[in-house]
Design a binder for these strands. Sequence first.
DNA 1: TCCATCCGGGG
DNA 2: GTGTACGGATGGA
Length: 756
Amino acid sequence: MILLDITYEGKDEVTTTLWGRGETFEDTKFLPYMYVIPEKTEKPNMIINGRKIVKIEELVMKDLNKEVNVWKIYFKNPSDLNLFRHELKEFGERREMDLPFARRYMIDKKLIPLGDVILPEIKAGKKEYPPRVLAFDIETIASKGIAIGKDPIIMASLWSENLKMVIGWGKGEGKHFIRVKDEKELIEKFVEVVDKFKPDIIVGYNSDSFDWPYFKERAKLHKVKFRINSHKVSALRRGRENVIKLKGLINIDLYLFIKNILAPYMKSETLKLDDVSKELVGQGKVSIGGAEGINDAWENNPKLLYEYSLQDAKVTYLLAMEVLPMIYTLASTVGQTLFDVSRMTSGQMVEWTLIKEAHKQKMLVPNRPKYEDSFGRRSVRFEGAFVKDPIKGLHSPIAVCDFRSLYPTIIMAHNISADTINCNHPECKKNISSTGTHFCTRQTGFIPETLKKLFDRRMKLKKKARELKKGTLEQKIVDTEQKGLKLILNSFYGYLGYANARWYTLDSARAVTAWGREYITQIMKEASMKNFTVVYGDTDSVMLTSQSESFKDDVINFTKEINKSLPSPIELEVEGFFIRGVFVTKKRYALLSEDNQLVVKGLEKVRRDWSKLARNTQGKVLRLILNNKVEDAKEYIREVIKKLKSKEIPISELIMKTQLTKPLNEYKQMAPHVKVAKDMKNRGEDIFPGMLIEYIVTPGGRSISERSIAVNLAKDYDSSYYIQNQVLPSVMRIFEALGGTKAELEETQKGLTSFF
DNA sequence: TCCATCCGGGG
DNA sequence: GTGTACGGATGGA
């Protein structure tokens, strides 16, 4: 069997179900268990609600760097464990009582998703296996504000290798269009098509929070059963949001994975499907003109809506083809199901990798912190990375040098771990960080040891990927695997300081950044001695410039020399060369690459509560500046200000949008959007949570709230508000870096100010 | 500065 | 679900 997913159930005896393609296997032999490090000699023997402990084994296990005697206590099913864990508190320290049962099963049986499971004794194997993937998306009537289930679903589109389909009612048309009578039939048809296709994996974009719950709500309204593969579509509360679990096929929400894992490595400023798919698959959505466009197309241009809907499913599918291989490789490293791994944050991936490794080494897993502890940990602040104040302004050319995986290599080079911290061996005191913490050098710690296994595996794969022919499938697979490992490697440091981590060690996290600061400042010092100007540096990278004719060679030689003195495996690399850069403050800069691409960090505002005008002006100004047209940029802003004063800018560019998140009477503070919503209600309009309030700031009144009114009522706007609170703030930080002042931008024309 | 509130993705 | 998991920005007081 090729393993896709694991579920379990059982009122008395637990049955674990392993799901493969079109087949299942039920295991009734595996029992839930937990550990107690006993403080008493007498073993527990109680009966609760008629339930008993199945058996208790005595074992010796590792607990950090100690050996301890433990009782391994078995139960008939997971809820028994939950029942007994409270009573077992008085017998000693309890461990591993909160590992979800299916995850425990994956670890103990050493299973790998998509690996082949050899039945019936259940051993993990591995086999090539291309799963059947189906992408889907829905369209709904788009009234004001997005609220789950509020308006009818008008189309549902599906895309896979041999399936392209748009199901719709109303006036829809198109090659792959399947007409149904109404929304109820649409829902039934969708279920029928999915069940017939039998995908192993069904993917959507933000589908856990939108498409699936939307289907559920509308199905409820029409009193139709919404079942996929004959099983309930269940919404499970997980943390802050619901996730959607299907049985017999894996539901993956690509948005969650991209947000949790890929986002920091992406260029895209937003994680909208359009932007993300443009970056990762090279094509975006059909442009339809937002909510109004959807409604308009539904009434007047059904062909366009059909194309829009189908393209959404198509790019979702193509995105899945790009992203799923990464999820597969992460899942095999982490050792958990695709369903779980695709929804994990990087900290959780590190944790489950460590739990798997601990189990292999017969090592007890530390408990999760209690709420108060993790709350307390969250408020602990410690010194992070070194970030150099940039030399503000424009610089050209720029070289970026950075350490390859600085934090992971520091953890390995200095053996940073919870079980090596502050040992009593005299010789280890030499391995001390500037925070005063030292780490054992006699034997490798659990964290660096696990890290090294992943690191070495990645180095091997990287080497193999370089040797293989580029563009081949094998090369792509190997390269994806090494990138997946990189993601996990890079998360280890964050994990040490992550408030909810089982292996949280504040002094380890502090030592990592302290050593990081030492290495990066040392590089900066040496770069200055070699006649480079250090324009900027952050954490593990430095940006250099010089007016030398042989700039590039100088930089390459510099890194070569530096690397002779760095302890292995720490290494400095040349990341790239740039034509020009503008540096504003720490974390805020923009670079122009040699192939004319903009790299913008920390500058762009893309949130909807800023006006279109502010966003567009900033983007335009940045491009002008990086093309060395500073005066043009200033002139451009003066022009915008002038147009605001003379009211030539249309109101449509000045709309600010803020969502109402709760009923009006629950607001304590009269924010602008709350005031506008109250006015709307007084005029008899329907106001509900989830509604997007669109407003304009007008002249008059005192506070911004008092001056805010609904867009459709706005005939005038407050030019000075838009100048002072929107346009100028969005561009000023860039201009301040160039030595500019607010005053010079506010001049309408040289010498002529007050006449306008 | 503190506190409340919002953002994200989706139509 | 062997439950109960964001992190950062903004704006008013």
